[in-house]
Design a protein around this nucleic acid. Structure first.
Length: 559
RNA sequence: UGGGCCAUGGUGUAAUGGUAACACAGCAGAUUUUGGUUCUGUUAUUCAGGGUUCGAGUCCUUGUGGCCCAACCA
């Protein structure tokens, strides 16, 4: 043994982990509790994934725990559909909430605390209209004006608040406001609204409430009730921290602390529930789980694995500055994961018929090929070979450019795991399109027993025409054509018109028939694909998750 | 004469007063029965000025630039 240091310097902490570590080291907390607090008014997207990983990993890494709490204070926009999808998405990502909770469970407590505040003369019922309140707010550079209702005595406010609660007033008739400072340089502190009247049906509390707390009156106290130690939110809530602390201070309850980080953005994607919802509602995509959507459910259906998404979040890290993570990182993560795990299969998207003229009609033989060269344990399978084959249209060119080493007239290629063939004749139809190829195979070139002595550069995938089956293949590309879709005020204008290409009749090898949805494969030389839920045994449907890296295509593109 | 947050290669994240690093992307090459994988090499970074210091990405100062805050949304 030597005295080599064992400290792992490769793992540097992000700024939130440093805070937690310091709080634990100083004895401020014996253990930590974080929370992920989505509002159930939409599906979770890739930005949320980053927040989920951040909160849950903090709990895991420092021996704490993480709650999932639905911030359901606005009944008009929220729904159980979203609650269910959010729980499913968090679990699919691989996280297990310590508790699943709802802010609405705290409505009674929040109501009692509001009365405490009123009793202290720190809150009042305001009958000013929304417009009047806005006008009295002032501007960032000018102080606001005090409401005429600001000095109503506490007893009177208590009675008024009781009437608000019992439903005696119509929507918008009045609000409960905190009495803080109309001249505060922080706009948030200019007598913020605490409660508003909404005679609305709540997804959990039904019609029992006609008043609902605002975010600022609900969030910090909910954290406090749960004894959340580190309440992590995005940067735009930083000005709210002063009010967050004020509420906790006024009530003298457990002091949860808020910390802010910059939301993660992704190139060629939007992370705005409002905009994503619009795409769904206007039918630009098939739903929240459309494989093109940057939602967690969309990525799942597209074929992304939880591991790849977690790795992506780990790689892009966390910080406080504006950022746009490059799509290529996400794509790298899924390729890296699937390269190790996905079984290889042959599929021909755009078939070109090849007749092996020197192969006896009616004969067939089964040739072994590896299921995954990265994983010997994945074993081998046998592929049927016969006189009539399909190859990819892209794998033949009549007038190939230099360095093209696939098939061309007179040229040779290796059919992967089978034989070398040589193209003798190009058969065209009446309109001059290539209809089929007549080739000869070299019998001595059989894979693994090649005595031909031939050296060919190109290796292509193929299928025995008679043995192949039909499948629908959906080729997805980026949903947006703009690297930053928010450059267009109207998201619809930023959409990529070619984000989906459906190939109704692709050919697949027999081993690919009748596979259950969700399974991942690499279609050799083409990319990673997974079975879509729309798949039926008579008509399999595959989604392209991501292409393989293709340096040849890149070279062609740049001429 | 409002307040808050931020500024490191193309992108993202480190460096906690002591050689500016890692990943992705890019480029070049090797290997390859996937133009994949793997491997090797390589291009490119501290917003600006001033100050403190033996030494500054880091501390101080003055600017500049960007984002957030005036919803009965969260």
């Amino acid at each position: 043994m030597n005295t080599e240091k064992t400290t792992d310097t490769s793992e540097h902490l992000n700024f939130l982990e440093e805070i937690v570590e310091a709080d634990l080291a100083s004895g401020k907390y014996k253990s930590i509790l974080t929370r992920f607090p989505p509002e159930p008014n939409g599906y979770l997207h890739i930005g949320h994934a980053s927040s989920i990983c951040l909160n849950f990993d903090l709990g895991l890494k420092f021996g704490g725990a993480t709650n999932l709490r639905f911030d359901d204070t606005n009944p008009v926009t929220e729904d159980t559909e979203y609650v269910d999808s959010i729980i499913a998405d968090v679990r699919w990502l691989g996280f297990d909430p310590a508790q699943i909770l709802y802010t609405s469970d705290y409505f009674p407590q929040l109501y009692e605390w509001a009365k405490v505040l009123i009793g202290k003369g720190k809150a009042y019922v305001d009958f000013s209209s929304a417009e009047e309140i806005a006008a009295m707010k002032g501007t960032p550079t000018e102080p606001g004006k005090e409401s005429p209702y600001r000095n109503t005595p506490p007893e009177e406010n208590l009675a008024l608040f009781e009437k608000m609660k019992s439903g005696e007033f119509p929507d918008g008739h009045c609000v409960l406001r905190a009495k803080i400072d109309m001249a505060s340089p922080n706009m948030i502190m200019r007598d913020p609204l605490l409660y508003r009247i909404k005679h609305a049906h709540h997804h959990r509390t039904g019609d029992t409430w006609s008043i609902y707390p605002m975010y600022d009156w609900a969030h910090g106290q909910s954290d406090s009730i749960e004894h959340i130690t580190h309440s992590i939110c995005t940067l735009e809530f930083a000005p709210h921290r002063e009010l967050y602390d004020w509420c906790i201070e006024q009530l003298g309850i457990f002091p949860s602390r808020q910390y802010e980080f910059a939301r993660r953005n992704l190139s060629y994607a939007v992370t705005s529930k409002r905009k994503l919802k619009l795409l769904v509602e206007e039918g630009h995509v098939s739903g929240w789980d459309d494989p093109r959507m940057p939602t967690i459910s969309g990525y799942r259906r597209r074929g992304y694995t939880p591991e790849s998404i977690r790795e992506f979040c780990r790689r892009i890290g966390i910080g406080k500055r504006e950022n746009v993570a490059d799509m290529s990182v996400l794509e790298f993560c899924i390729r890296e994961d699937l390269n190790k795990r996905a079984l290889r299969r042959f599929a021909v998207l755009r078939p070109l018929k090849v007749v092996i003229t020197n192969y006896p009609e009616g004969q067939e033989e089964w040739l072994p090929t590896e299921n995954n060269p990265e994983d010997p344990d994945a074993g081998v399978r046998n592929l049927p070979f016969s006189r009539e084959l399909y190859i990819e249209q892209d794998d033949f060119m009549e007038n190939p450019p230099p360095k093209y080493f696939r098939l061309s007239p007179g040229g040779m290629v290796r059919l992967k795991s089978a034989f070398i063939i040589q193209c003798d004749e190009v058969i065209k139809d009446d309109s001059g399109n290539i209809a089929e190829l007549h080739c000869r195979y070299i019998p001595e070139s059989r894979s693994g027993q090649d005595t031909s002595g031939l050296k060919v550069k190109g290796v292509i995938h193929w299928l025995s025409a008679a043995h192949s089956k039909t499948a629908e293949v959906r080729l997805y590309d980026r949903l947006f054509q703009l690297e930053d879709p928010t450059e267009e005020k109207d998201v619809v204008k930023a959409l990529n018109p070619h984000s989906l290409e459906t190939i109704p009749e692709a050919r697949i090898e027999p081993a690919l028939a009748d596979i259950e949805p969700g399974r991942h494969f690499q279609f050799t030389r083409l990319g990673y694909f997974c079975v879509d839920p729309d798949s039926k045994s008579e008509k399999p449907v595959f989604n392209r998750t991501v292409t393989l890296k293709d340096t040849w295509a890149k070279e062609m593109k740049h001429g």
